[in-house]
Write a protein that binds this DNA or RNA. Structure first.
Lengths: 232, 232
DNA sequence: CGCTATGTTGATCCATATCAATAAGTGTGG
DNA sequence: CCACACTTATTGATATGGATCAACATAGCG
């Protein structure tokens, strides 16, 4: 693994406080690879051989069953994915594919587990990370079970807007097809849902979303910190 | 906290390997309480003051939004709940209420966090526990997004059957109303879903489920270890 | 340029929710 | 121990959100 990638990874909350010695033993066995778009990196059910760290690009986590497929999450740099499978030495529950050209570091799961056993600050960082992941998935479940698709879309738009610092116009950062899948609906239904938000001052032009009436949209979406806040 | 409760808690995977000294500092500030049924123990949004351990009885974890409510999980003895909120010192994402008369140990979250900082085997046990919780919620999301309600019910029945060691007859261990909510449907729809499984050899009499044709049901349900297996 | 994948729109179908009425339990107090 | 109230479960009728199917438009892209 090229040393130039060290700082990026070291800067992650997960690796920030661990001993140099242990960080080195993680990077020693690791390697970094560039992948073209649309490559299936991992397949659900496979044993978790590597902890993945996305350095640049983007990755879709998805799952399939009985011929159906759904997008579970999108990973953006710089962050790890499938930490839980690595820790438990259990099969992946989700598949992963690159969405664009992506640079990914691969750390053998075995190494992660042994360093985890020997480095307490690493173990604690993993706890914090996992607790956050857990809470994200719980929020997502609440979103799915408590809201209609129109409400999910409205809240998604507000969350995105927040990520962009509150701008009233912004571009969707991935294709509608996958947004639909992530939100648990069909592309056709998403198309109509965008129309359905027009009365609340949302207009869509290609990938560009504009929020013409913030108050109206919020009144409809009723965002909640216990579902929509990114951290906490 | 009465000493008679020590062994039960100490036996949990979470506390098994920690130092006696640390276990004592957890139990020192803890107390045990008996609650009648239908008591709201915690309310989502509240700060996480205590790690809860269910010693006997049962507890429903649920969430609400905009006047709607959904059951997220049922806790059975002996296990902890809302560990993630305690660890992150963040507000509860779910509310909890007793379903029956329940005995619950309450450990101040502050104590959990300090012992977690000082006891490495405790920290590691928490990692394992959280990773498992995370994976459960991911499985649940897959169940929700990839299956129809009839399929979810069919697989739920098979999972329950497994928990009872494969008996072809067993009782549902909670009321249909809450099962419906947990599976993400209305009580009316659950009622009809049970009827809808008759062609696959499922008959229902009150709370008693019988599986008359295992193979047929499995062929329809298509259970997957990546969604339905309890552990891993 | 076409070619192929993505997005939109319309028509229709289906799963599930909602509303309403009834039945069946369950618990409480007289 | 029964009558009453109250909650839960079932069943039917209907409404609706969302899926599916089909046609067409559009946009990237080699």
């Amino acid at each position: 693994m090229p040393e130039s990638d060290y700082p990026d990874i070291r800067g992650l909350h997960l690796f920030k406080d661990m001993a140099d010695e242990h960080f080195l033993s993680l990077t020693r066995g690791a390697y970094v690879q560039n992948f073209p778009p649309q490559i299936e990196l991992i397949t659900e059910g496979d044993p978790s051989d590597f902890l993945h760290i996305l350095l640049s690009g983007s990755v879709d986590l998805f799952s399939t069953w009985n011929g159906r497929e759904t997008s579970m999450a999108t990973v953006r740099p710089i962050s790890t994915f499938i930490l839980a499978a690595t820790i438990r030495d259990a099969p992946y529950l989700m598949s992963a594919r690159t969405l664009e050209k992506s640079r990914i570091a691969l750390i053998p799961s075995q190494d992660v587990r042994s360093v985890f056993d020997g480095d307490n600050s690493f173990a604690r960082a993993i706890v914090t990370e996992l607790a956050q992941c857990y809470r994200s998935v719980v929020k997502n479940t609440k979103d799915l079970k408590l809201r209609t698709s129109l409400e999910r879309l409205a809240n998604y738009i507000l969350r995105q807007q927040n990520r962009r610092g509150g701008a009233s116009e912004f571009d969707l950062d991935f294709e509608k097809r996958r947004l639909a899948s992530f939100l648990g609906m069909t592309p056709e239904n998403l198309s109509r849902a965008f129309k359905g938000l027009q009365p609340y001052g949302v207009t869509v032009n290609g990938n560009r979303i504009s929020i013409d009436n913030q108050k109206d949209l919020e009144r409809f979406a009723k965002p909640s910190p216990l579902i929509d806040d990114v951290s906490t």
